[in-house]
């Protein structure tokens, strides 16, 4: 296996939200197979900066697959070709020497492009603000062991809570639906005793906000779950639908 590889990159460049974007082609050389995908972009940026060209802007922060900031659509798939990882955990050994790699931002009406590969995902924050919490203040809460929670339920809640809010589910969906994201939070709290008091209200409010933000409808294709870097299960959507319909008719 060669230790260093060369690639052709087709990258979406768009100076700001107002202007029209286009693909631009770059060549990168001598990329170590141990480099992460984002380190490869760091190298490209160093090179083009030295030549005086504006570096390619992309969101990234923790580079450990947990903050949910990185958000690249690579060769037609959110977070690239590997299963259950984010872009920052993707390594260049995955890409054969000499290949062309296409890099785009998340594409969804509710996620407008800010610049290049960076999109605005504040719609997700507003959905959480609509009801993704338990309405308790700091202090005055019961002892942590006062309410036992079956291990099985706690584990299921944790499975749902693992969502990192990156938006890959929306990017993967042909309708740009946010059902997987919303249902993960609704499920986490629906599975725990602490979430019961506001369970119905929460499902209604969060779904309503989701619709208001302009996300599309769900047709149960499962692309969201298949591309989710944290493997959030499709059954969460079923759980949310049940809560939503129960709330809507009661």
């Amino acid at each position: 296996m060669e230790k260093e590889r060369n690639y052709t990159l087709k990258i979406w460049r768009q100076p700001n939200a107002q202007s029209k974007g286009a693909f631009k082609t770059y060549e990168v050389k001598n990329i170590s197979t141990g480099s992460s995908f984002l380190e490869m972009l760091d190298i490209l940026n160093e090179e083009i900066s030295e030549k005086g060209e504006d570096p390619v802007h992309f969101d990234h922060d923790c580079r450990e697959g947990i903050c949910g900031m990185c958000s690249l659509f690579i060769n037609g798939r959110p977070h690239g070709p590997e299963e259950e990882i984010t872009v920052c955990q993707l390594h260049m050994r995955t890409f054969a020497n000499g290949t062309t790699i296409t890099i785009e931002p998340w594409r969804a009406k509710a996620f407008p492009v800010i610049k290049d590969l960076i999109v605005d995902r504040t719609a997700f924050d507003r959905i959480i603000q609509a009801g993704g919490f338990v309405s308790i203040n700091t202090g005055g809460v019961p002892d942590a062991n006062a309410i036992p929670i079956a291990k099985h339920d706690a584990e299921l809640a944790m499975d749902a809570a693992a969502c990192i809010g990156c938006g890959a589910c929306v990017a993967a969906c042909k309708n740009a639906s946010a059902m997987l994201f919303v249902s993960a939070k609704v499920s986490q709290l629906a599975l725990l005793p602490q979430g019961q008091a506001e369970r119905k209200k929460r499902a209604l409010a969060m779904v309503e906000q989701m619709d208001e933000e302009g996300f599309g409808a769900c047709t149960n294709t499962g692309a969201c779950s298949a591309e989710c870097p944290k493997g959030i299960d499709l059954s969460n959507i079923a759980r949310m639908n049940r809560d939503y319909f129960t709330a809507a008719i009661s």
Binding site: F133, V134, I136, T138, G139, V141, P142, D143, A144, I147, P148, I149, A150, K151, A154, E155, A157, M158, A161, Q188, L189, L192, Q194, G195
Partner: peptide, 13 residues
Amino acid sequence: IDQCVAQGVPFAR
């Protein structure tokens, strides 16, 4: 710990 459990943090059990 009490506060976080009340918020719905799914600690291991």
